[in-house]
């Protein structure tokens, strides 16, 4: 009897130990759920968070994030999120109302889970402080496409890291190593990309939308103009005439368009002037080759350089 009781005690102890042993990795695996507005931020958050975060992007690739219409499921995603990452700079203005509606105070403006990734970025094309269209440019508080400068990823991942550490302190070391490793890999690629794009240096380019300011600054590219006078408006006749003159007088040989941007006026200019149309992606997932952040920049660099090498 005593022997069987003893055996039972052993069994109980074994079960407790087993449960503890099994439980600890579960505790470690309790991942931080993050909602990012764009796929680019998602990719950067995954680079820092590694296996300890699960990230959802709200805006699908190849959609204009500025005109995104939230879906019912987005509310559920925000309700359960511990962090929300946004581009800021008036790029994803719709997020504020969505967060408010979700009732999740932690991720509201000023909350511990609220991350504006434009923090600390040196903004370009600043025209004013008002929200909404102004002076031929919807980006009243600066050009929002700052993630296209790979060096800005340093600041962006720093902001993400800080928020992750604030919300998941036990894993701080892990996140720091992840980020350092990512930045090391990125820095190496940036050196390569600068070399690859030396072919394009100073060559005049035309783009459909003013997406490429930061990309141009980093890689010393010369965008001489934009086809779209204001977001969502096709160019007017005199503008189109002026663009044709610009393309011819400055010998622009490449016009840049994104996959989701309208082809009509780009193709028209290309047909009139013989300039080549190149499709570049401004966000992760816009083309299949750009499946994550480094891949996105790599695709753009290679495509642009190839267009010029072919043209020579």
């Amino acid at each position: 009897m005593a022997k069987s009781l003893n055996a039972l005690r052993h069994l109980a102890r074994a079960i407790i130990v087993a449960v503890l042993v099994l439980w600890s990795p579960v505790a470690a695996l309790a991942v931080v759920s993050i909602v990012a507005t764009t796929t680019d931020l998602k990719s950067l958050a995954e680079a820092v968070g590694g296996g300890r975060v699960s990230v959802v992007a709200l805006v699908p690739p190849n959609t204009d994030a500025e005109e995104y219409q939230p879906r019912p499921h987005d509310l559920n995603r925000l309700k359960d999120a511990r962090l929300v990452l946004r581009v800021g700079v008036d790029y994803d203005l719709w997020l504020d109302r969505l967060v408010q509606q979700s009732g999740n105070r932690a991720i509201a403006r000023g909350g511990p889970g609220y991350v504006d990734c434009s923090f600390g970025i040196a903004l370009l094309d600043v025209r004013g402080v008002q929200v909404g269209p102004a002076g031929g440019h919807a980006h009243g508080s600066g050009n929002p496409h700052y993630w296209l400068d790979p060096v800005n990823a340093e600041m962006m991942t720093a902001v993400i890291l800080e928020a992750l550490v604030r919300n998941d302190a036990p894993n701080a070391k892990y996140y720091e190593t992840q980020r350092a490793r990512f930045l090391e890999r990125l820095a190496e690629r940036v050196r390569q990309w600068e070399k690859t794009l030396a072919v394009v240096h100073g060559k005049p380019l035309l783009a459909y939308h003013n997406t490429w300011a930061y990309f141009a600054r980093r890689f010393r590219l010369n965008f001489v103009g934009y086809i779209e006078p204001r977001p969502g408006l096709p160019p007017r006749p005199s503008q189109l005439a002026a663009l044709i003159r610009v393309v011819q007088s400055q010998r622009v040989s490449v016009i840049v368009r994104q996959p989701h941007e309208p082809a009509a006026s780009v193709d028209f200019l290309s047909a009139k002037t013989g300039a080549r149309v190149v499709i570049l992606a401004s966000s992760v997932g816009a083309v299949s080759a750009a499946s994550e952040y480094v891949g996105l920049l790599d695709y753009n660099v290679r495509t642009l350089a190839a267009a010029f090498r072919e043209g020579l």
């Binding site: 096709p234 160019p235 006749p237 189109l240 996959p259 941007e261 309208p262 082809a263 009509a264």
Partner: peptide, 16 residues
């Protein structure tokens, strides 16, 4: 990317 495609179909642009 089809959203843009629908918009294109409906707005058109006689200039181009």
């Amino acid at each position: 990317q089809g959203t843009e495609h629908i918009k294109q179909l409906l707005t058109g642009n006689i200039l181009t």
